[in-house]
Design a protein around this nucleic acid. Structure first.
Lengths: 220, 220
DNA sequence: TAAAATGTGTAATAAATTGTGTGAATTGTA
DNA sequence: TACAATTCACACAATTTATTACACATTTTA
């Protein structure tokens, strides 16, 4: 099943959008008309549909209605028609959104990404072979699940969300333990060690969590 | 739990929207600032939030982020700021939509109605051998009916509607018991145990309701 | 209406997991 | 090399979660 099905008769535009989406690691398929769209959808399914309403022949509303009759697959309507009535029709037929053409590609990408996150819990931060899912609080390395304790997970998240930046030990400690904690600062290094044990290929020679002498740590 | 929480400092506007929504049979509550919004949400929950970004004091983005950290509750941002960057920020923080002010009330209502339909009025949720029927409040496992108590059913529904996401114990407790409940939080774990007894093949080794140590639970 | 069954919350205890401090060993830096 | 910073292993403390039994409320049944 493709992540995204683009239904658009303007081939150039379809290609352009497709490229952007693939750059974000979605798998994409394209249909140029209503018949192909339905047949593709019914044969392979899709996790999200970007649907141009103005198609040659059969119009896009029919597709929307048809798909909505059998599933809740998210549908983003994209159209040059800006009438209120068109929008209402689209929304009432069950489209998740109605976006006017010409649209801003960044906005569209943000909307798509948001739907994937909320709908499929795909809020993942990927770094090479490491995949961190914030909402699920899971970590995978080479498709192997790593079991993390609460503190380890928070530590990893803090590092990875500030990747490339050196974080001071104080900052890290205060962020995770709270500055009113009466734990020893030493504790942080111990947790760093455990984290390395889990995520580094060779914990003796860390490649991801680097020590910055006299300061703190940096995630690469 | 109210259907819709309106976060809006313009009282007139809030009242107007509230009236329209009540006419459509939603239950509505209103918060005039960020603090009230969060406290209302945390105490009673909400099924959808209409969030004005420009609030006195703390801005609305913080609310959006905060809510998204613990659940997938739909958020519609409404704002007079029309910059691309504002929109992107809102969407990236997890808002379901960013609607420019002044908005057309019919469009807003259509969007809200669509979200409710897709998100909540799906009668039956299927997950492998488990079938949960919301309207009838029944649960079937391998075509065998499981008798659920009220609390068990709500708990299961909450988990399954946020499947894949780790829910904190506080959030679960507040959502089901209400944060002004004077029950012990401990109660939650007891109900989890009973629920597992019913839906897990081997309650000693839960495959569906997983414990996330130090945080809460996650439905797979 | 009484009795029985069921639902819910609590408290005590057991089990499991996670957090912490220590000090010796190791490593990096000047 | 000397010194400081860091790492590491271990043991144990603290915390969190699971289990159980029981009390009481509520609903259903006889």
């Amino acid at each position: 099943m493709a992540d995204i099905l683009i239904v658009e008769d303007n081939k150039e535009l379809a290609k352009l959008l497709c490229d952007f989406l693939r750059a974000e690691n979605y798998t994409v398929s394209i249909a140029e008309n209503a018949e192909k769209a339905l047949s593709l959808y019914q044969r392979y399914g899709a996790r999200l549909i970007v649907l141009d309403i103005m198609l040659p022949g059969k119009d896009g509303y029919a597709i929307c209605e048809r798909i909505r009759a059998e599933s809740n697959t998210p549908i983003l309507i994209v159209s040059a028609r800006t009438d209120k009535d068109d929008k209402l029709l689209g929304l009432r037929l069950g489209a998740d959104d109605y976006i006017e053409k010409p649209y801003d590609i960044d906005i569209l990408l943000a909307k798509i990404s948001g739907i994937f996150k909320r709908r499929y819990s795909l809020d993942e931060i990927t770094d090479g072979s490491l995949r961190v899912n914030k909402a699920a609080r899971t970590v995978y390395k080479d498709d192997m699940k790593l079991e993390m304790t609460a503190k380890e997970f928070e530590l990893l998240l803090l590092l990875i969300e500030n990747r490339g930046r050196t974080l001071s030990k104080e900052y890290m400690f205060n962020t995770i333990w709270g500055s009113d904690s009466d734990s020893e600062p030493q504790t942080l290094t111990v947790h760093i060690k455990w984290l390395r044990q889990k995520i580094e290929d060779d914990p003796k020679k860390p490649q991801r969590i680097l020590t910055v002498w006299g300061v703190g740590y940096r995630y690469l």
